[in-house]
Simulated scan of single mutants.
Amino acid sequence: MPSKIAKVATEAHGSMSVSHHQAAVLMARTTVEAVAKAQGITQGSLVVKIDELYNRHLVYEHVRDAAHEVRFVGNDAAHGDLVDKPINEDEAQAILDLMDMVLDGVFIAPAKTAAQKAARQAKKAAAATGTATSTPTAASTATP
């Protein structure tokens, strides 16, 4: 995940940790928009950007829907619609969970998959050339 996006997501969680629920939601919305921009989707409203993440097969349908939920609540917070009825802790946490789902779908899961694929291919290549590869086992890494 790009460090700038990780920083914004961390700020969202940090806001939540001090019960700044609206700020957490605003930063979650900012994070979702930054995710789209990091994927080269820079034109149009956030609605368009989120839908384009899906259209480019960068997220599954449920992750697209999660991003839209972050957008809906984030827009309310951004436009002062929560002044009379502020967002509560449970709602804010739900939005952060959805933001994390977007981050996982776009960055974390693909990176884990690529790492596993590279490890499998390296193991296969080593077997084909007769080069031994070793993976530490619990017994070999245990300390006396």
Rank of each mutant, 00 (worst) to 15 (best):
A111H: 14
A77R: 03
P2W: 02
A142N: 10
H20G: 11
V35E: 01
H57V: 14
A28T: 09
T133W: 03
N88C: 04
T42W: 03
L103N: 01
D104I: 08
A92E: 10
Q116Y: 11
A92W: 07
V47F: 13
K37S: 06
F72D: 14
V18C: 00
K4I: 10
T10K: 09
M1S: 12
T10M: 07
A119G: 05
I5W: 05
M27I: 02
A12T: 02
Y60M: 12
T31A: 04
I50H: 05
T133N: 06
L53M: 07
L103G: 04
A23W: 00
F107H: 10
P110E: 09
L58F: 10
L96C: 04
D90W: 04
K124F: 03
G44C: 06
A127H: 08
G44Q: 05
K49T: 03
A36Y: 06
T143D: 08
V63T: 15
K124T: 14
T113M: 13
H20A: 14
A114Y: 07
V8A: 09
T31K: 03
E61P: 00
A128N: 13
A34L: 13
N75F: 04
I5N: 04
D90P: 00
A78Y: 02
Q22M: 10
D51S: 07
T30H: 05
H57A: 14
Q39M: 13
I87R: 00
V59Q: 10
Q116G: 13
R120F: 12
A92H: 08
A128L: 14
K112C: 11
L26C: 09
M1F: 10
G14W: 01
Q22K: 11
A67R: 02
S15D: 15
K85A: 12
T141H: 01
D90T: 13
V47H: 12
A115R: 14
G14Y: 01
A114T: 14
R64H: 10
A142G: 11
K124H: 07
M27V: 03
V18F: 05
D65N: 11
M1R: 11
H21Q: 07
S19H: 14
A92F: 05
K49N: 02
E69G: 06
V106K: 02
T129F: 08
A139F: 08
S45M: 01
P144N: 12
T143S: 11
E11K: 00
P136G: 09
G40F: 06
T10H: 11
E91V: 06
M27E: 11
N75C: 08
A125K: 09
A127G: 05
S17A: 13
A126M: 07
A78P: 04
V63I: 15
A9M: 02
Y54M: 03
R71T: 12
K4P: 03
V70F: 07
K85V: 12
T129W: 08
M99H: 05
A109Y: 13
I108C: 02
H13E: 12
L53C: 07
P86K: 02
T137C: 05
A24L: 02
T42E: 14
G80N: 09
D104V: 06
E33K: 01
G14V: 00
G130K: 01
R120K: 11
